[in-house]
Structures are given as C-alpha cells and as structure tokens.
Simulated scan of single mutants.
Amino acid sequence: MTVEDVMTTKVVSVTAATPFKDIAQALITGGISAVPVLDDDDHVIGMVSEADLLRKEEFREEFYREGYRPPLRARLRHPKGRQKAAGDTAADLMTSPAITITPAATAVAAARLMDAHDVKRLAVADYNGRLQGIVSRRDLVKVFLRGDEEIAAEIRDDILDHALWVDTSGVRVEVHQGIVTLSGWMDRRTETAIAVRMTGRVNGVVDVVDKLTWKTDDSTWEAR
C-alpha cells in the first residue's frame, strides 16, 4: 500500500505570512496537529505544529513568570525556543525544510520516516516539491482495518494461487482480527517459509502463525 492510498488530499495549509492566531484557528477548526506552509506556487517550504505554537507559552512560563527575566546565558541556550516564542507568523514559527514524502512511497516508508523524525504527520509532495496531500499516523493505522475475509481472499488469490508458482492445494488460510494462521502442507520446507514471509507483507496482516508442514526438508540444500 502506498502513501497515495491512505493520504488526505483536502489539506488545510497556510502561507509564510499567515498570522499566529490564524494558524491556531486552522489547527483547532481542522482538528489537526500541524499544517504545511506553502509558497505562491504550492511548494512546501515548512510545517507549523501545535508544539511550535506552544513554544510561546512555554518560553514565557519558563522564564518570565512573576516578572523574572533570565540571564543572557540562559536565553542563549534556547535560541530556537526563543525565536519561535517571539514569532508572529508562519515564517517565524515553522520548521524548515519540511519533512516530505512522495505519493508513490510505501506506507511502511512513511511510518519509518515519522518515527525517525518523531513527527505525527508528513506533507506529501511530488518530485517538484508541490503539495499533494498529508499523511498522518492515523492514516497509516487504517491499513490494519481491512476485514479478515478481504485479507484471506488476497492471500489465497494473489499469493497462494498466483505468486508462488507451486502446489498450494494443501494450504489452509484462517484470519481472525488480522492474525493469519497458515496450516496444512506444501512440498518443500523452503516453500513454506516463502509463503509465510509473503503473507506477512499483505496489507492489514497483524501477525502470521505458521502451522505448515512439508514433505521434503530442502533447507539443508540451501545451506550447501
């Protein structure tokens, strides 16, 4: 499954000149945690998140409550926080360059990119950098909402009957809550391993329980 399959195409966006309060209103109204910042040609130039907006209050609470003003060395230790705390527009507040992904990338690649950068959503841009959509963690979770019958049908039709090119008549497929159980027999041990591996890559599969047996143990041939 690709990013294009799960992304949201109706995107709330702002420009570099959008004021602080308008950004906050866009986040609240849209029920979202971040918005892309676009230039005049729809290129993604940054992202503004709830965390970026909250820097203003956090910095004020940390350093300026009860009239206290921190010494210069303390303020210098928080240059980005101070800069964003003083920001009034998206240009001041945004994280730039934005972390983007292409529509053709896999959902797995999107999940890994989010995890690597500790973000909840990614701007989806074409190869020219123009916005195509937004993909969030919630969008990726939707992959696991496929029905058990739909998953089982794909495993039988696409993997067992077409992809493996071996006799799979002895294989049974059962799916419950996304957990696939493969049971029965195949001719060779290496074939069962391939079947299990390919089944695990089907969208919506949570786990694979391998109960397959084989007539010939050819794993020792591979070792040679």
Rank of each mutant, 00 (worst) to 15 (best):
V206N: 07
R224E: 09
L122T: 00
D41P: 06
R73S: 12
V44W: 02
L131H: 00
D217E: 05
E4A: 14
E50I: 09
M1Q: 08
R65E: 15
D22F: 00
K211G: 12
D210L: 01
I194K: 10
D42C: 12
K142V: 09
R156S: 13
P97C: 09
S33C: 06
S169P: 02
G200F: 05
A125N: 04
M198K: 15
E4F: 09
S33N: 09
M94A: 05
R77V: 07
M94Q: 03
V14L: 05
T9H: 03
I194Q: 13
G46M: 06
S169T: 13
M198W: 13
R60L: 11
V44T: 11
T2G: 03
D126F: 02
T18Q: 02
T29L: 10
D139R: 03
Q177K: 15
W221F: 14
V48L: 04
R55Q: 12
G133M: 01
S183V: 04
A26E: 02
T106I: 05
S13Q: 06
V173R: 00
S49E: 02
S183K: 07
Q25Y: 05
T220Q: 13
T15Q: 04
D118I: 10
V173F: 01
V205S: 02
L93Y: 00
A195T: 01
R112T: 12
D207R: 14
K120M: 03
T9P: 05
E174L: 11
G170A: 13
S136T: 07
V48N: 00
D118M: 09
A34M: 06
V48D: 00
A98K: 01
E191L: 07
S13D: 08
Q177D: 14
M186E: 08
T95W: 05
T213M: 09
P97K: 08
D157M: 09
I159N: 01
K21I: 11
D161G: 07
M114F: 14
L182Q: 04
F59W: 12
T8H: 02
D161A: 15
A91I: 11
S96H: 07
A90W: 00
R75Y: 05
T15P: 06
K142M: 09
L122F: 07
